[in-house]
Design a protein around this nucleic acid. Structure first.
Lengths: 127, 127, 127, 127
DNA sequence: GTGGTCTAGACCACA
DNA sequence: GTGGTCTAGACCACG
């Protein structure tokens, strides 16, 4: 997978977010074995300890399972995964609308801006 | 104005963001005198040093002006203010779409979710 | 406070347990400021990172609060503290009874053994 | 016999504890032949190496005997078995009282809690 | 001075 | 080879 790391924020937290999004959107299947901490870390260009912290966090959220000496796997619980994805979506939409609200924008103005931005993106990608 | 402060992230940076949004959306008029650092700080419940830093940051962005002895005022440059607002808007929309893209969502799914979320909010606020 | 560390188990986890017991039984009062991580660590003879992990854990359990640059305090929520103490008690009693059950002991035998052990201890302490 | 295995702690050690308790409380008679390592392991759902280690440990404690070609048997020494059981009992009671002491509980409070917990268990099991 | 983060490097138990 | 832990030491943002 691709990693985007911004030095200004805690790296472990960014790793957590990206892994959560990736797994919950099907990048790894339920029950699939994950790369080892070391491999993951070197792939992302971070220290293994840092990656481990990110993975522990995901375990706390019930998204992955640790098998003491046999590596980690994505949870088998497809419902859990789905609900995590819904949660992320909902949270991001809420945060976005909150952040927009501060600017005092009318709903129709926002909708037109959004529609424009989305079509530009699709355009950029598709054409 | 209302302040939302989350202790887990740099406070000065949150103040900066909120002030920028507030000013650029007309909370203070062009040329209007701002409260003193001390008053601002006590209103927000933060250390004056912290508020000081936020204001310096905004000065760097050309939104406010420091008058040697007479405190700070919002810039007179209405165009500047407008362009700042546009910049914030554009950036927030882009960030949002980026963050959503990771989840592999189709445009029409996104639009329907957004429409729903917006109408729920309007409902809650307006009615 | 006193620290008992057994090298065979994760240190951070033992620190967590002991701090949890100590705080929840009133060793630090609600709202009281805790020693700094560094002080705590040197007092317990462990690396600051290790102590920090233990404290983070306790924060996750809602027993202590972190004030970014002003140190940590015990939660003000006396109910929370009380409920943590009850939880520890209940868990330890259950674990004990589970561990005893394996040995196939009759209730009256257990009671007499317990009563004897308790009185011996009190004797040892009181006399 | 029933096995309770918690993946987060060393498995061999849990097996050791449970076997020790089981044998010393008469689950296998003095001199009785034990199942093969392989059978034991598959029954408990663990790796044979792990079970092997647990059995070696018990041999070290004088509870079981390895007969070059004829598998393992429980020791014939009934006194030894009895004393092991007493040791476990005493140790578990001591550990429990130690762990409770940290919480600063009065003897009568402890007794009433224990009596309640025991009667609840008996109730749940017996009725 | 406070907590937070990160790295490098080492060691361990387990299977 | 796997995850887990620990240490030492450094740097940072904050107030």
């Amino acid at each position: 997978m691709e990693w985007k790391i911004d030095d200004r924020f805690p790296i472990w937290s960014q790793l957590t977010e990206q892994l959560e999004a990736y797994i919950s959107s099907g990048g790894f299947k339920p029950g699939e074995k994950l790369p080892s901490v070391r491999d993951f870390a070197s792939e992302a260009g971070v220290n293994p300890n840092t990656m481990q912290r990110a993975l522990s966090e995901l375990e706390g959220r019930g998204l992955i399972v640790t098998n003491r000496t046999a590596g980690r796997t994505v949870t088998e619980d497809a419902e859990r995964i789905k609900s995590v994805r819904q949660g992320i979506l909902r949270r991001r939409i809420e945060d976005f609308l909150d952040s927009i609200e501060e600017l005092g924008i009318k709903d129709n103005e926002l909708e037109s801006l959004l529609r424009k931005a989305i079509s530009e993106r699709s355009g950029g990608t598709v054409v």
